[in-house]
Structures are given as structure tokens and as C-alpha cells.
């Protein structure tokens, strides 16, 4: 790990000011950044600790929730409003990592964690365009069982590892940001992360020095049901091969609203808009769910080692929607 300066921000303005230099990075729980620094994949010369930033979980006037970026994953998952009104979010959080890590990790940090591609992590012995653009990608013809089937590029097939972000994508969450010059803006969480294209080294659309200050959850009508299902190689403490976050409003067999996001399949939490448009206004039958999944996965471009993810995603989408539809299907 390279030596660095450490400072602790007392509030957002302080944080943005302290992180004014190009080599500075924000530090949340450290569960990903400290690891990457130890691997020398990240080499900041200054860390600005933002875990002391104010910001709790508050009700919004619209009936949603505003969540401070420094809120720990556990605190979010256990919050009564989240458990009862946004179960998909609670479920996604507790499906991720381990309890110890969830006690450390912040909301903002979770969103900004980087891929777990083993070639990305092998800083010295493997080629990776995400670490070093133009170097080449050893995953393409190597071990890529965990890798992307949707939205990947010839340069990068890495996937985003977060579970929580998948739920946030399905909830139409909004990310609140503050920039270096004090400017404030917000983004739909689905626009926070980008696809790799030719620049897999750039994970998000954040400006340099821009800080995630909060996440806003829009209100969710009480008629909506939501859940999260994660499929992985061992029964706990493993990243998703495929995960599905879904929100469904179905009455008398008709789908009034549906939102689906997929994890483990792309460089970003993958909002399944094609599947949603197939379903919206239609009937909630198993056949419709399968057709919607097929529509979404028609664009999948698998490699030999991860082709199974198409079938796995298809089955998991259908199973999750059937579960949410319950007796209505």
C-alpha cells in the first residue's frame, strides 16, 4: 500500500473541500477500497474519511426515504421502514457479503465498489483493460464463469458485484451528488454506473471529486410486492452468479407495474427494461414471465464459460415473478 494522507470530513462541504486534489479518494467503510489499495490497484495519495458525515434515514415529503450515503449497510437493512416498505432492499443487502462487512460498508461505498474479476485483482500477473486501458483482457479467453453476458465489450466483460445496487435499480432510486465546486445534482441510480465500452477503467458517471451524499427512494405503493433472489456457488458469502430484484403490482391477473433488475450479468446493475415493457399491462402468467425474460436475454452475448447464465437468469426471473404474483398469477 502506498503511503497516503488521511483526513476525516465533518460534513459534506468539508469532504468535498478535503478531496480537492486529483489523487484524493473518499473512504467509507473501506471494505473494498482498503483491499484494492493493498493490492495497489488503487493508489490514492489522500483519503478523505466520509463515515462521520451526517445523514440518517429520513422520510421524504413524498412518502419515500432519503438515506445518507454514510449509513451502514446493516443499519439500512434493519430499518423498519426499509424492511416493511422496501423488502427487496433489505433482502438484497443481507444477501451480500458477511455481517461483519455489512456493519462496516456504507451505502455510498457499496455503490462504488469495483469488480471482483480475478484478473482485475491480479495486478502484477494478468492483463486487464479496467486496470490499465489498452493492456488487453485475460478474462475473455480465460476463466470467465462469473462474467457478463449483457452489455459487455471486447475490452471488458467484468460484472458489478453489488447486490444492494441491484435492488436500488429496481426501486428507481435517485443518487444525490455534490461536486467539487459545491454544485449539487442528482442521477437515477441506473445512470450512475456505465457499461465498459472502450473505457472499462471508468466505472461510473461521477465527476472527479464528486461525492455521493444520499440516496432517495421514491414512495412505493402498498400494492407493490418486491423481493430479491440471489443465485451463487455457495449458500452464503459469495458473489452472485445471477440475481434478480423485482417489484410487481398485479391485480386480477393484470400487471399494473413491474420493475426488474439483474445482478451478476453486466458491468452495472442491469435494469431489465425490455422485459418490463413486455409485461406491463399484460397478464401475469408463467408464459408471459418467460417471454419477458427471453426478450431481455435476447441481447445476451455469452462466452463459453458463462453461457449457462442465460438459462439461469431466465429461470430465476420467471421464478421471482411467479413468487411475487403468488395467487394472482
Amino acid at each position: 500500500m502506498r503511503p497516503f494522507r488521511y483526513s476525516r470530513a465533518v460534513d459534506v462541504a468539508d469532504a468535498v473541500r478535503l478531496a480537492g486534489s486529483p489523487g484524493a479518494r473518499y473512504l467509507g467503510g473501506g471494505t473494498n477500497l482498503v483491499d484494492l489499495m493493498r493490492e495497489t490497484i488503487e493508489q490514492p495519495d489522500a483519503l478523505v474519511d466520509v463515515t462521520a458525515m451526517p445523514g440518517e434515514i429520513e422520510e421524504t415529503p413524498e412518502g419515500g426515504l432519503l438515506i445518507g450515503a454514510a449509513v451502514r449497510n446493516t443499519a439500512l437493512a434493519e430499518h423498519p421502514a426499509v424492511r416493511t416498505r422496501y423488502p427487496v432492499l433489505s433482502r438484497a443487502i443481507v444477501a451480500g457479503a458477511s455481517a461483519q462487512i455489512r456493519n462496516m460498508a456504507t451505502l455510498g461505498g457499496n455503490l462504488l465498489q469495483r469488480t471482483r474479476c480475478a484478473y482485475f485483482y491480479d495486478n502484477h500477473g494478468s492483463r486487464c483493460n479496467k486496470r490499465q486501458p489498452g493492456q488487453g483482457c485475460d478474462a475473455l479467453e480465460g476463466f470467465h464463469r462469473n462474467h457478463a453476458i449483457l452489455g459487455a465489450s471486447a475490452a471488458c466483460i467484468a460484472v458489478h458485484p453489488s447486490d444492494m445496487a441491484v435492488a436500488l435499480a429496481a426501486l428507481d432510486a435517485v443518487v444525490h451528488l455534490q461536486g467539487r465546486n459545491g454544485s449539487v445534482r442528482s442521477l437515477p441510480v441506473t445512470d450512475l454506473h456505465r457499461l465498459p465500452g472502450e473505457r472499462p477503467d471508468v466505472d461510473t458517471l461521477l465527476e472527479p471529486g464528486e461525492l455521493i451524499t444520499a440516496i432517495e427512494l421514491p414512495p412505493l405503493p402498498a400494492t407493490l410486492r418486491s423481493t430479491y433472489r440471489k443465485v451463487r456457488d455457495r449458500s452464503s458469502y459469495a458473489f452472485a452468479l445471477v440475481s434478480v430484484a423485482a417489484v410487481l403490482d398485479i391485480a386480477d391477473g393484470e400487471i399494473r407495474d413491474v420493475r426488474i433488475a439483474l445482478g451478476g450479468v453486466a458491468h452495472k446493475p442491469w435494469r431489465a427494461t425490455r422485459a418490463e415493457s413486455v409485461l406491463r399491462g399484460g397478464s401475469g402468467t408463467a408464459a408471459a414471465f418467460a417471454a419477458a425474460a427471453d426478450a431481455e436475454l435476447a441481447e445476451a452475448r455469452p462466452l463459453p464459460g458463462n453461457a449457462f447464465k442465460i438459462e439461469l437468469a431466465r429461470r430465476t426471473i420467471v421464478a421471482v415473478l411467479r413468487e411475487l404474483a403468488g395467487d394472482s398469477a
Binding site: 476525516r8 473501506g30 471494505t31 483491499d35 458477511s98 461483519q100
Partner: peptide
């Protein structure tokens, strides 16, 4: 493991369990 993958370094901070390998000591003033 020193990388947050095994839990052997678990300690309690103000009663909460965390992984001490991923925690920079300076964060715990």
C-alpha cells in the same frame, strides 16, 4: 486473508462485529 474473505480478524467495535483487516486504525478515533 487480509482481504475480508475469512473473518478470522473479527473484533467488536462499540459492540459491533467488524473485520479489522479492512479497517484502517486511524478511522477509529
Amino acid at each position: 486473508c487480509n482481504q475480508g474473505a475469512c473473518g478470522a480478524c473479527t473484533v467488536l467495535v462499540d459492540g459491533e462485529r467488524i473485520l479489522s483487516c479492512l479497517a484502517l486504525a486511524v478511522q477509529f478515533e
